[in-house]
Amino acid sequence: MTRFILSRLFWAVPIIILILAVNFLLVHLAPGDPVQALVGDFPAPQSYIDQVRHEFGLDQSIWVQLWRYFENLASGNLGYSFANRQPVLDLLLVRTGATLILMIPALTAASVLGVFLALLAAPRSGSVFDSGITALSLFGYSVPIFWLGQLFIILFSIHLGWLPAQGMISLRSAGTGWGYARDLIWHMVLPVFSITIFFIAIVARVARASVVGVLSEDFITTALAKGMSRRTVLWRHVLPNAMIPVVTVIGYNFGYSLTGAILVETVFAWPGLGNLFITSVGNRDYPVLQGILLFSAIMVVIANLATDFIYVILDPRVRRSYGAQNA
């Protein structure tokens, strides 16, 4: 087990390093003085610019610069955002939370819905359900997610007036307790729904293939032979086995999912990473942009690690093959 964790952690390191390298390169790729990339184009006091120039060793050789860069990041110094008057790290932590509030319900809904549809469709291969899943997946892969969000706003907020169009809470919000939660959830409906459709594209195909595969397994015959009903077999034998590839695919595609969330946020003016990205592009607030990239990479790595653990929990076969080496 320890060995398994170590091998996966070892795998995560090169990804983080690669992202850091890209970030470092960007500092030098940006047009103009490299210090601009570290401070941003937003007006900052000359004293801060001089401080950054010194901290990152921009007056010294490239290797010293690389070392200083890593050193600063390792100590949590992602710079200061003058546009937001906040250290970049604090800003990112708050915004990441807002993004995850959208992502996690959407991921859960997409996987549950995807697997549920697959379970409905699989026993009737070639039926309406079946082609419906393929169509849904194709739709999810082809539709510009931000456009879908715009359509939802036009339809549900502007025309029907059912749901709030933008933001996280109402301006005249109750502010505390239940009222606040209700208001928040009310605002979450449309963005979460948009992201769910985006995620279903990944889930539906895998879930369908996986359910069909499990249904043709021999142990399903055993379960039927002992007199269990098809419905019970579907829930107790097919579902747990079919979930394994679905969970894996969701976890390993976290980067793709994050993209969807960020694009949807910008449509719904949701104060998460995506929205921060847009305003930072407008303000030419480079340290924030680099911070977003770094944070996304870290989240992807964490999601991958988490997936590995969930996989181990779901599939006892992996548990042993790694446990045995350590026993």
């Binding site: 992202i19 890209v22 960007l26 980067g255 793709y256 942009l289 680099q290």
Partner: peptide
Amino acid sequence: RFSEMFQVMPSFILAAVIVAIAG
């Protein structure tokens, strides 16, 4: 292994940041 690394990365965000900074 190198190509797998690219597939795991949040590619869109990477592209967006590169274009945002490099122009």
